[in-house]
Amino acid sequence: MTGAQLKEELIAYSKSIGIDKIGFAAADVFAELKERLKEQQNHGYQSGFEEKDIEKRTNPQLLLEGANTIISIALAYPSRMKDAPQSTREARRGIFCRASWGVDYHHILREKLRLLEAFIAEKAPHARSVSMVDTGELSDRAVAERAGIGWSGKNCATITPEFGSYVYLGEMLTTVYLPPDTPITDQCGDCNICVEACPTGALVQGGQLDSNKCIAFLTQTKDFLPDQYREKIGNRLYGCDTCQTVCPKNKGKDFHLHPEMEPDPEIAKPLLKPLLKMSNREFKEKFGHVSGSWRGKKPIQRNAIIALAHFKDTSAVGDLAQLMKEDQRPVIRGTAAWALGKIGSEAAENELISAKEQENDGNVSAEINKGLQMIQNQGIH
């Protein structure tokens, strides 16, 4: 069987197992990406979650000796939630980004790639293949761009003509030669909407992201959030979709092709106050199957506290005060103190004053003082 014949069979098989788009690229060094990554590193724009070794990220031969082809796959996910619950004054809600709706996409894509690997092994028994999704060394976007899946948008997402940027990406390195596809040319043109709409200015310029300012990254950190970003997070519990939702190429794009990707509204848009008292076990039972749970309960709880402050939810004062006085984690105690100052009621002020006397952690004490200062500035006594 020739490479061209195997490619045609692979394309047909990929459709039969629910892969929405498949592309093929040569396993050459990503020279342009290498220079971009070095620039990112020099500017300190990296998040720390990515593979640190630039050689591994840009040279497929280091991951699979004798690699000839990289297969890129894309699965479209929904952009709209059916029956989304409303956040009301009595019951405030947070939101998980669209990439954390439904079952963790890593599992879904790995299974598709496993099936593709088995198909190739059956057709070409001597082939060696290795697959990765998101957490692998290769850049999913660089591979997808070379394989003709889409172009790298100014919002740093892969934008496909069919599904917009609402796609999950995965790739497979294989020693089999399969004829490469033609990359899609950049179609962003003069549009700069995403760069201008980014809440924190994390999109330094089209196609360049300072990860340390990106809300999607910030929501996943476990420490105190810098003050200037607390105001920007709003009610986001995990991730940020702003640079996708404002993109003209995403207008009208909403695909419900995979039942396992459909969001449970009570998980994708959960009530905030119950999150504050949730045990590790309860958190895993409710959120463990979504990608947004990978960093554990702490960042989600911290973000829920910030969201309640964003809403100035006076009904949460008692719960926040309890966290500030009793929680073992300084980040949670301190963020709760800041939130009480932001909410700014007389009850919140009294709780802060009483907590100030018993707090021994310097960082938490600083947050209590910050909260009291906010209330003083608001003139609440």
Score class of each variant (00 low, 15 high):
81 M>R: 15
117 E>S: 09
100 S>N: 11
68 N>K: 06
128 R>G: 02
86 Q>A: 08
163 F>V: 01
139 S>E: 02
149 I>V: 10
156 C>T: 08
115 L>G: 08
124 A>T: 11
98 R>H: 10
64 L>M: 00
118 A>S: 13
134 D>N: 15
164 G>L: 05
137 E>K: 08
155 N>T: 03
79 S>H: 14
111 E>Y: 14
74 A>K: 10
93 R>M: 13
88 T>A: 02
82 K>L: 08
116 L>C: 05
85 P>V: 01
132 M>C: 10
85 P>E: 00
89 R>H: 05
85 P>S: 02
170 G>K: 07
77 Y>M: 01
85 P>A: 01
133 V>H: 10
136 G>H: 14
169 L>M: 11
76 A>V: 01
76 A>L: 06
102 G>V: 06
172 M>T: 05
150 G>P: 01
137 E>V: 01
112 K>A: 09
131 S>K: 11
76 A>N: 10
181 D>Y: 15
106 H>P: 10
177 Y>R: 06
122 E>G: 05
162 E>I: 13
74 A>H: 04
81 M>D: 03
180 P>C: 04
64 L>I: 01
155 N>V: 00
84 A>P: 02
122 E>A: 07
84 A>N: 02
116 L>Y: 05
104 D>L: 15
175 T>D: 04
175 T>S: 07
116 L>T: 04
149 I>N: 06
183 P>T: 11
154 K>G: 11
176 V>T: 15
111 E>D: 11
129 S>Q: 07
160 T>P: 13
103 V>W: 08
127 A>L: 03
181 D>K: 03
148 G>Y: 05
134 D>A: 00
120 I>E: 15
69 T>K: 09
68 N>V: 06
78 P>N: 12
184 I>K: 10
123 K>N: 10
187 Q>K: 12
69 T>L: 15
167 V>T: 04
80 R>M: 15
82 K>I: 01
64 L>S: 09
82 K>R: 09
107 H>D: 07
133 V>E: 09
159 I>F: 05
68 N>A: 14
155 N>F: 01
124 A>H: 02
90 E>D: 09
159 I>G: 12
152 S>G: 05
75 L>Y: 08
138 L>P: 00
134 D>K: 00
122 E>P: 07
135 T>E: 14
186 D>E: 06
93 R>S: 06
66 G>D: 03
154 K>I: 04
167 V>C: 12
76 A>Y: 12
101 W>V: 11
115 L>Y: 14
124 A>P: 00
92 R>C: 15
120 I>D: 14
100 S>P: 03
89 R>T: 10
79 S>K: 09
131 S>A: 12
90 E>M: 14
179 P>K: 13
165 S>H: 07
75 L>T: 12
86 Q>F: 06
181 D>Q: 00
111 E>L: 13
97 C>E: 15
100 S>H: 06
158 T>H: 04
67 A>W: 11
69 T>M: 07
83 D>T: 03
174 T>S: 14
